[in-house]
Amino acid sequence: MAFVEPKESFAGKVYQITIGSDKTAVFGGENALPFLTVDGNYPNKPVIAFEIQDVPPTDWPDTVRKAYENVSGDPVTWAKYCQNELNAQAIALRLVGTHPDRENRTAEDAAKTVKDVLAAINVPLIILGSNNVEKDSVVLVAAAEAAKDKNCVIGKAQEANYKTIAAAAMANNHKLIAMSELDINLSKQLNILITQMGFDKERLITDPMCSALGYGLEYTYSVMERIRLAALTQNDATMQPPILADVGMYVWKVKETQAAEADVPNWGNVEQRGITWETVTAGSLMVSGAELLIMRHPEAVKAIQKFIDELN
């Protein structure tokens, strides 16, 4: 029996997105499943953004907090450190301090932080709210205005607040993250609602909701895989925006990234374990479809970069 390579070619293609205004980053653009270059092109490597916050990361576990010990007191210093010392391709600024249960910072505070950070860096900026749907619709509007024309990524628009956030992203020339809850149909639905407002589908990024290794990873993994299959095999435009995996936030709250080795001797060194947890979560989601990842630990990012180099 002679072997014939069972290649497949697809009608559909993932949109290619460029972010940033000075130094830029490009992702998406492939017409094949992740890294399956026998079938088609995978022209751009996945992009990794370093996550920083508007307030000190008091709630991050030791392993990852220590990595930013001397810089995380202030978002500008932190952002510069990521760009200059860690060679970040992009920065993701999470305005978690605006959450009503946290510091409850105002939209004006947030806008100022965004301006200051933008003035200090030249790599692309991703601006994230605190995931409080009401507050985000105020905070992200102010943030989008403060960053006007800088070609940032604004997120996350959810079913409950997408209108104001999408309008602000559109008016100020940004890209937009649309997040739904681990369901391919909800994800499609939200992308449709947002594009019906006149938002360009080629400026959207889909966040099907991340989950950590051991804590629902398989759901995110399969939703991402199904989104990619729909984009390619069905040429479904609503499924063709690049996919975001917001990894760090989900990983650095699970027990495996924190429990002391003395309490769980079978689990080994806590630092290595935490870094590996983030690395493995990110690696799996890249293999299933993510093109943009938000991560925390520099060592995890380093490992993922090596993996990406091998995949291209």
Binding site: N266, W267, G268, N269, Q272, R273, V280, S284
Partner: peptide
Amino acid sequence: EKWKNLALFTVRQNI
């Protein structure tokens, strides 16, 4: 290594 085993076992279990 133990930490590596835990991560790999878990990803296998998930998949």
